[in-house]
Design a protein around this nucleic acid. Structure first.
Lengths: 246, 246
DNA sequence: AAGTGGTCTAGACCACATC
DNA sequence: ATGTGGTCTAGACCACTTG
């Protein structure tokens, strides 16, 4: 009598290690929503059994996903699907306030509009598609510090198109998760130097043409779909950033 | 008859895993120069035997050191002590030339002097200690792009104090290794915005007061001793930098 | 007490690089 | 052919977290 074969056993493939294949399989199950963000994965023993591999092999696969930032492993508690980006505040590029407190946020403008060529390309949609455009001012200890313009693809962010923006709180990503079920999983920040346009200068209380650093952020969800384009401007003289190489 | 105890066995300690303790021991042997930069470590089996641990445990220890950038593991070849920093060119913060070719380097000034308070603090020496000060211009396709000021602690970099600087080539770190036996292993780059002083402006062919990005680099050797302070300035309009978050 | 991930072992076998 | 690191197994035991 043949031994029972695990339900989801990983088929050996040339050129791909078992744990890499396993990681791909698990990644797919997570992205498909089998375990939603914040939820716990089955125990190591269980998963290893399901996929017909030894514990060590399963752990190698999970280590890959943890490196990618897809899951969080917590000793004694379990393995969890990551909720979203942590520690990625745009304020980290500048020296404002005490550098710790979350800045306050005020929505200056909200507007339903259509995607320009530039915005469409960034968000991976067609030109002219509907988007929600926001202007936002972030203040540190009451002092204006960052002026932001945001573009959000519209069918998906419809819940943010109406209602009182004063009730949104100071952080957007938790809002995206709560109201739209959108979890930001990855983002790229591109920095460059610029001069302040009149509108931004007014918001920040600086003279027009004042030097600024412009951060362009593109944020992606779990599946890799772009979900937010954000342009942040702050006083170039407050810009401060450190990288360590090894 | 008691079983033979390995020469360098790791003593179990509360609160410290065996592989972490082992990594510390190996790190010490590397830093002490037992295996100089570029040389190969003994095979896994050998090291595991020497320290009286299983192969898997030794591999965990080596994985730590590889993460730190202390060693390079190469399948089928061996485990090597890293030579030095790779891919850390300061030009990565700017968009000059084709972005690939190594820029040419010209030493504009070389001067034996003493450390100011600021330089001394950065290099971890006393104020007034002798240092070698260099000014350097880096060009891309013949166009000046980066103006650099460097400070090197002097007993150690004596070999660079004399001789023809034209023979130095375009990269400094290989020069440090070849002439002074100094290997750069880690560095931190701190960025801020500034305006060009007259001297730097002249070098770069830009007007005085022109906006620039100033990168201050502090480089360390294997032991963690600061060995180079470098201040690089480039046109703020050429500044371009991208970070990915996850 | 029960369940989770973390550590450690002792071994077999595979894949890569070099002579 | 030989030596290197990479993969995989099957298990034991430890450490952390929660009911």
């Amino acid at each position: 009598m043949p031994s029972a074969r695990p339900a989801l056993s990983v088929v050996p493939q040339p050129g791909v290690s078992r744990y890499a294949a396993l990681a791909t399989a698990l990644r797919a199950r997570i992205v498909a929503g089998e375990w939603p963000p914040g939820s716990m994965l089955p125990a190591e023993q269980t998963l290893a059994g399901e996929h017909g591999v030894a514990l060590g092999t399963l752990r190698q696969a999970l280590a890959l996903l943890a490196d990618e930032g897809l899951i969080d492993r917590r000793h004694g508690r379990g393995t969890f699907v990551r909720q979203g980006l942590a520690g990625g505040t745009l304020a980290r590029f500048f020296r404002f306030g005490d550098g710790v407190a979350v800045p306050t946020s005020r929505i200056v403008q909200r507007q339903r509009t259509t995607a320009t060529t530039e915005v469409a390309q960034a968000l991976g949609i067609a030109r002219g598609e509907p988007v929600l455009r926001l202007s936002r001012l972030r203040s540190f200890d009451g002092e204006p510090g960052l002026a932001e313009d945001l573009w959000l693809p519209l069918p998906r962010f419809q819940p943010l198109a109406d209602g009182d923006t004063a009730a949104w709180g100071d952080l957007l990503y938790p809002l995206y998760a709560a109201r739209c079920g959108v979890h930001v999983h990855r983002a790229t920040d591109s920095l460059r130097f610029d001069a302040l346009a009149a509108a931004h200068a007014r918001l920040l209380g600086l003279p027009p043409g004042h030097p600024c650093v412009r951060v362009e952020r593109l944020a992606f969800d779990l599946v890799g779909t772009p979900i937010e384009l954000r342009r942040t401007r702050g006083d170039a003289y407050a810009f401060r950033y450190t990288v360590t190489l090894t």
